[in-house]
Write a protein that binds this DNA or RNA. Structure first.
Length: 634
DNA sequence: CGCCCCTTAAACAGGT
DNA sequence: GACCTGTTTAAGGGGC
């Protein structure tokens, strides 16, 4: 009911797209342009330069693709220049939807197959180059990516031609090597070609499958198009037909390109009708758009990774980096990764360890402050600091994308987008209280927190305020404390943990619990369904379904719907105070009746997380598991 | 089907 | 009396 009126309240403009808009400044022909500049600076073109150029082209193509993804989200009208050099690689990527290393590929593919792939990849490169310097107007299927881009200087053209020749020679050399079975292991031309190919493949696989990862990652890029009924234009299609140059970015090949839709529409009118009917502004569309944003985010991360890889390769080859590349975050599939920087070096088992440096910090592509907002808030909460279980906590974070990190990362989003946060009132209230310096808030302060943090709660105040009051009174975890200046509300952590759902056991329920653990338990059906259907694949995907132990599985319930559990857990890593009790955590004023006797046992384990203690794990996993609630306390 | 959780609505009381 | 705060009850939906 509230969703319907959401479209009426558009109060923001898509002004924050820093991560993407920075990419948008990279034009389609950027790679070629860089190559051209190289050609300007260097009279002689070395093979190393060519490799560099190839890599740059690949990255530029990826950037362009990201740009398209992002621009599809941002502005529906920005898709006119949507030809893409990534077009053809799509087919390559779909040919082999596996992420394999060049070595693995050599093992898998026969030499002819490998040769064909290489030829195809090389042809792509050549096609790109030729496309740029033989004028795009000669190619009916390609649009001019950037006006004036084809107006290269003669020197640049000469460079391009030289590049083509070198590439041909290079390709021939590679194929000869392949025929002879001499596949060098060091990053040579063949390997780098494979690397480029792999990059394409990886990117496009991500495009293809990342939408399925929906509920798992709460996206962070923040677009205001949520507020408009039809402004959510997600362009999943890498192809763009010239006959549809003026068409809708979500429409192509006679079918709807909305993620997961593929409904057949004969013409634009039918498509528009379909779009209005099936993809109107509702929870499901919102969730899907959120997923798409996550796709973009992941691609950006991946792009950063590949850029770093390129830098490393170039460094290895004694090449001069063309530009300082932002080093990236390790591909931490847990969206709470930003909150887990402290122990990011130690990857939880089951998570894919990034091949590249894990210690390099990332420049957030989105709202920088949002990533640290909750963290910083809780670092101030000096005394109430308890550590968390190292492995289990991370597993918990991994599976139950903590709402804290979700809020932390998407605070700007929720602040501006009129989207209902997928958390329960109790979770939000608890988060608000725990976020406060004193860990206590008056009712009015809770109200203010809601309105301050969520655009959604700036309307229908009577409804949600009533709900807030109702929750405060209903749940025993919220304790009213008389204060000098009135009454404040605090959180009784023990009680809060008590109300958590029973731990999951079987695999069928696992997924659902995990989803609910993501904080979507309170969503309405459509939203849940949208997220669930997108999450299933991810949750079943190998890297995330390799639970390290029964304990890790049982941890899954810990994050249920809490907003802040992970925030304080993670941020309390540094300060180890095993003697602090949950009561102290919840509130000093509150008098508790039944302290948990086992908490002292679990506490040392929880200290492992941030400070890499080597305390032995308690042998009794069951007891530990029962202690989890207290373990979460600070 | 029953239970539980969550949301929403509403009535009511007490205080300012 | 209006408003805020807090409590309580009820209904409905969804998951298990």
């Amino acid at each position: 009911m509230m969703v319907e009126s959401a479209s009426e309240t558009i109060r923001t403009t898509p002004s924050n797209q820093n991560g993407v808009s920075s990419l948008s400044s990279q034009s389609d022909g950027g790679g070629g342009r860089e190559g051209g500049s190289n050609g300007d600076t260097n009279g002689e073109i070395s093979p190393v330069d060519l490799l560099h150029l190839q890599q740059q082209q690949a990255l530029q193509a990826a950037r362009q693709f990201l740009l398209q993804q992002a621009s599809g989200l941002n502005s529906p009208g920005s898709n006119e220049v949507k030809q893409s050099p990534v077009q053809v690689p799509v087919s390559m990527a779909m040919m082999s939807p596996q992420m394999i290393t060049p070595q693995q590929m050599q093992q898998i593919l026969s030499p002819p197959q490998l040769q064909a792939l290489l030829q195809q990849q090389q042809a792509l490169m050549l096609q790109q180059v030729q496309h740029t310097h033989t004028h795009t107007r000669t190619h009916p299927l390609l649009l001019d990516p950037v006006p004036g881009w084809h107006q290269l200087s003669s020197k640049q053209l000469a460079f391009q031609q030289q590049l083509i020749q070198m590439q041909q020679l290079q390709q021939q050399h590679i194929l000869n090597l392949q025929r002879q079975g001499l596949v060098p292991l060091q990053p040579t031309a063949a390997m780098q070609s494979l690397q480029v190919w792999r990059f394409y493949t990886l990117l496009l696989i991500l495009i293809k499958y990342l939408p399925l990862f929906a509920g798992y990652f709460m996206c962070t890029l923040y677009y205001i198009t949520f507020n408009t009924r039809f402004a959510v234009s997600v362009c999943l299609s890498v192809h763009s037909h010239e006959e549809h140059a003026s068409s809708h970015p979500l429409y192509g090949h006679g079918e709807c390109k909305w993620p997961g839709c593929e409904a057949l529409c004969e013409d634009m009118g039918q498509f528009i009708k379909h779009l209005n009917n099936e993809h109107a502004l509702d929870d499901r569309s919102t969730a899907q758009c959120r997923v798409q944003m996550q796709v973009v985010q992941q691609l950006e991360i991946q792009l950063a990774k590949e850029s770093e890889r390129l830098q490393a390769m170039m460094t290895h080859l004694h090449m001069r980096p063309s530009e300082p590349k932002p080093f990236n975050q390790p591909l931490n599939l847990a969206s709470s990764g930003s909150l887990l920087k402290r122990d990011s070096e130690a990857y939880p088992e089951g998570l894919p360890h990034p091949p590249t440096s894990a210690a390099t910090p990332i420049t957030p592509l989105r709202q920088g402050p949002s990533v640290i907002s909750s963290s910083s808030l809780h670092t101030h909460s000096h005394s109430h600091t308890h550590a968390v279980g190292p492995i289990r906590r991370r597993n918990s974070d991994k599976y139950c994308t903590p709402i804290a990190s979700e809020l932390a990362q998407n605070c700007e989003f929720y602040k501006n987008a009129d989207v209902r946060p997928p958390f329960t009132y109790a979770s939000l209230i608890r988060h608000a209280i725990l976020e406060s310096p004193e860990r206590q808030l008056t009712l009015n302060e809770i109200y203010n927190w809601f309105t301050r943090k969520f655009a959604y709660f700036r309307r229908n105040t009577a409804t949600w305020k009533n709900a807030v009051r109702h929750n405060l009174s209903l749940h025993k975890c919220f304790v009213r404390v008389e204060n000098v200046k009135g009454a404040v509300w605090t959180v009784d952590e023990v009680e809060y943990q008590k109300r958590r759902p029973p731990k999951m056991t079987g695999s069928p329920t696992l997924v659902k619990n995990m989803i609910s653990g993501l904080g979507f338990g309170s969503l309405n059906a459509s939203y849940q369904a949208a997220l669930a259907e997108s999450s299933l694949s991810l949750l079943n995907s190998p890297p995330l379904v390799t639970p390290t132990s029964a304990a890790s599985l049982n941890m899954l319930h810990v994050g249920h719907d809490d907003v802040s559990s992970t925030v304080e857990q993670v941020n309390s890593n540094g300060s180890c105070s095993p003697t602090l009790s949950p009561q102290q955590y919840s509130h000093p004023v509150h008098v508790k009746e039944e302290p948990t006797e086992l908490e002292e046992d679990s506490r040392p384990v929880s200290l492992l997380a941030g400070v890499t203690h080597s305390l032995p794990l308690p042998s009794d996993e069951r007891d530990l598991e029962e202690d989890l609630p207290t373990e979460e306390l600070e």
